[in-house]
Nucleic acid binder design. Structure first.
Length: 584
DNA sequence: GCCGTTTTCGGCCCGACTGTTTTCAGTCG
């Protein structure tokens, strides 16, 4: 059993213990241990066989035994007994806003409710309002929550959230009573999936700002509206919260509401270690609860807060408590990639396969955006649903593409379309085109588009074999996942990364917001193996060029710098790099 | 369940809001 599955089970144990009414610190210990395992870079088996599991902070004697049992036998008796003792419907009920473990347990204990459907029936019959600690309001809120969950998803793509958030943020920025404003929360941290959108503003007239916010176009309903905070539902059912604070409080509130929760906990602990107290209102020279301005440590920006806690500035994307504190203590936070460092995309489609524009139109558009180059990598013949090219059509495309490049050169432009293919990796790991054809192309991306159901060993071998081909520059969307839609296929990503390191193959960061594949959590491993990243739009139409910005944000979240990303290179340097693997 | 420059026991991040209460528990971020 791999560490991700072990982490899932530990998280679930934590939730089940909550429903049992266990000591909250015990339940948190399971959640913490799960997070620690997820962040591990070493295989769990290795840690266990070398008897080093206990050296990890947050894993004591009891968890060591449980993890070892899981890894060794694939099962855990404690977990199975616990799971059997709690109806699965209770876990589902926790998704309903306002329902936590205590209330869910009470509903189960007193009314025998075990499913969401039963809960709905009980609410409609008025039985829930009669319980101690419940009332009319709680009952109708639960009903609303059940309805809402049926209508809307509770998790959304980052790209959808940004599309809604940016116009609102612009609006706030232009409001005369707004001093400073920003997004916060998971949107600001650039998480690939978000729950809601958080905004923060500073103002001397909070009421005006709140009023303005709740009247934005695109607001479907207003859930709450108070003196300093409002909560609305936007199109698509995405909830958005705005908090308005004084400008003095702004940096503290921004840090606090940006999170992550785990990052904030570590920040407060650092404050306590220094005899300080940190909350959303300020950093205070006092161990006691206070908001006394005389005790305030003045900070004008988030950077000042980090400085007071002996830390270098930590960009929002890194605030996941995944090593940023150790790096910031040593002043080793890298200078992260900027999206403007990117010069073009090396994996894109045209109307020769399943994309929209012609070669000429694409060249004109991308040159107009300021790109230095743009690779056309249409599908190969096996992807016939995507109108994949056979060798004959590909050679014809190469001629037409050369023609387009000549016309740009004649105009005195340095812009260049690069030739290429997104060649299918067949079930046995062979490629859809012969090597001699691949050798004629500037850029070769190898990806899997069929045969998703192979087991992990087969899939891993298949990808490694593709990486071993010296004409393959990079592996495309390594896991094939479609966020919120399709699970990744089973593959040992670290083993494939190791193979890329050995063969000099690059790994794509597919910037399509449904993909963001390779996942940001794996880039520091790839980086440690000196595997280079290529941020690709996988564009099928002009608008997809905008994915570069999203991809760069995900790369930042993976701690990548300009030097780690191939398509930051100028054309000449890029061409040189493209030739290296073939010369090996 | 974890952890230890006051500790092997008694802590474990912090505050707001809501709805239910009559001083607070539960939930949320």
């Amino acid at each position: 059993m791999d560490k991700d599955r072990v982490a899932e089970i530990l998280t679930e144990i934590g939730t089940l213990l909550e429903l049992k009414g266990e000591n909250p610190f015990k339940t948190r210990a399971y959640a913490n241990a799960a997070r620690t395992l997820e962040a591990l870079t070493e295989p769990l088996e290795k840690l266990i066989s070398e008897n080093r599991l206990g050296e990890i902070k947050g894993i004591g004697e009891a968890l060591q035994k449980k993890i070892t049992e899981l890894v060794a036998t694939g099962r855990l008796a404690y977990y199975e007994e616990l799971k059997a003792s709690i109806p699965p419907g209770l876990v589902e009920m926790l998704q309903i806003p306002g329902l936590g473990p205590k209330k869910a347990k009470a509903l189960n204990d007193k009314l025998g409710i075990t499913t969401v459907d039963q809960l709905e029936t009980a609410c409609k019959a008025g039985k829930v309002a009669d319980l101690d600690g419940f009332g009319e309001k709680t009952q109708s809120k639960i009903l609303e929550g059940i309805q809402f969950r049926r209508t809307y998803a509770s998790r959304h793509l980052l790209s959808d959230a940004l599309a809604l958030a940016e116009p609102i943020l612009e609006g706030l920025r232009g409001h005369p009573d707004v001093i400073r404003c920003s997004t916060a929360g998971s949107v600001r941290r650039f998480k690939e999936i978000i729950g809601d959108i958080d905004f923060l503003a500073s103002s001397k007239q909070p009421g005006h700002v709140i009023e303005f916010f709740t009247k934005q176009p695109g607001v479907l309903s207003v859930n709450a509206k108070g003196e300093t905070k409002a909560s609305v539902v936007l199109q698509g059912g995405i909830q958005a919260d705005l908090r308005v604070v004084s400008d003095r409080e702004f940096p503290f509130a921004l840090a606090y509401f940006t999170g992550s929760k785990e990052h904030n906990i570590a920040m407060r602990q650092r404050a306590i270690q220094r005899g300080l107290r940190l909350n959303e209102y300020g950093l205070f020279r006092s161990a006691e609860e206070t908001r006394d301005p005389k005790l305030l440590v003045p900070c004008a920006t988030e950077e000042d807060i980090f400085k007071q806690l002996d830390l270098a500035n930590i960009p929002p994307e890194l605030r996941e408590d995944q090593g940023e504190f150790a790096a910031a203590e040593r002043g080793e936070i890298p200078r992260l990639l900027e999206w403007t460092d990117l010069r073009g995309s090396l994996h894109n489609h045209s109307n020769w396969s399943d994309g929209r524009g012609s070669l000429e139109e694409i060249a004109a558009h991308m040159e107009g955006l300021g790109c230095a180059y743009w690779a056309i990598t249409d599908h190969s013949k096996s992807s016939f649903v995507a109108n994949g090219l056979d060798p004959e059509r590909l050679r014809k495309q190469l001629k037409e593409l050369a023609e387009v490049n000549r016309s740009w050169a004649a105009k005195g432009s340095d812009f260049r379309l690069l030739t290429g293919s997104e060649v299918d990796i067949l079930a046995d790991g062979k490629l859809d085109f012969e090597d001699d054809l691949l050798a004629e192309l500037d850029v070769v991306v190898a990806s899997i588009h069929q045969g998703f159901s192979q087991n992990e060993a087969e899939m891993t071998k298949r990808l490694i074999r593709a990486a071993e081909n010296r004409f393959v520059h990079m592996l495309g969307h390594l896991t094939g996942r479609l966020l919120l839609e399709r699970e990744p296929y089973k593959v040992n990503q670290r083993a494939v990364i190791d193979a890329c390191a050995e063969t000099g193959t690059w790994v794509e960061l597919n910037a399509n917001p449904y993909r963001f594949d390779l996942d940001w959590r794996l880039w520091s491993y790839a980086k440690s193996k000196r595997v280079k990243c290529v941020i690709n739009c996988d564009a099928h139409r002009h608008e997809h060029a905008g994915f570069l910005r999203l991809g760069a944000g995900i790369a930042r979240k993976g701690w990548l710098t300009k030097a780690d990303v191939i398509n930051t290179l100028a054309l000449k340097a890029l061409m040189k790099e493209l030739g290296k693997k073939r010369a090996r």
